[in-house]
Amino acid sequence: MNLTLKIWRQKGPQDKGRMVDYKVNDISEHMSFLEMMDVLNEQLVNSGDEPVAFDHDCREGICGMCSLYINGQAHGPDRGITTCQLHMRMFNDGDTITIEPFRAKAFPVIKDLVIDRMSFERIQQAGGYISVNTSGNTQDANNIPISKHAADEAMDAAACIGCGACVATCKNSSAMLFVGAKVSQFALLPQGQIEAAERVLNMVAQMDLEGFGNCTNIGACEIECPKGISLDNIARMNRELMKASLK
């Protein structure tokens, strides 16, 4: 199929940036979206132009690097996927596709479609861990009884790959689905409960410091999340913070 692409080009963090139109021809519907981007970049390199910078790593939906806001949706028009898992069969011959970086003050553009998601790392560093001794005398985790329900919920929360689609899609650029998942995956398990109060206080404080917006329970994040992280995690984080603040 033949496509027109409207792509955000920005030379660097200081550049103002603008949308630029490109044409690509003979795209197979079996290609992934990123392969289509590869075709475009090859075309640009061959004609001596600067290729479009975009993030990717695993190309199988597990690393969370590939971002892209495609036709007004994070990771494009399909559900429960990352951009590398998006197929060109979701589009039609002759389509115009708008491709933008994930937008949020806390995700500044580095170049073209590449954004800086270090704000997520700093939130993780503020409390997204448990302090256990791993120097060889670690206790077998199965020695601690955990209910199936809690284990399942913790596992579901831990599925978050930190891609940032929740922030990108949120009209408030709120990171609460991400932080809710990271708080929950530990809060649900006995190993995480010891540091639960300071964890949620520190992670929420860091989230606010990074300049993410305030959740208004719109729920778009849950729908666009490639890993199906549920809004329940935000409610749990709210409860955890209330509990921690009352202490």
Partner: peptide, 10 residues
């Protein structure tokens, strides 16, 4: 303010 630049298409 947290959003910054808005999308061309949303």
């Amino acid at each position: 303010k947290a959003v910054g630049v808005s999308y061309a298409r949303n």
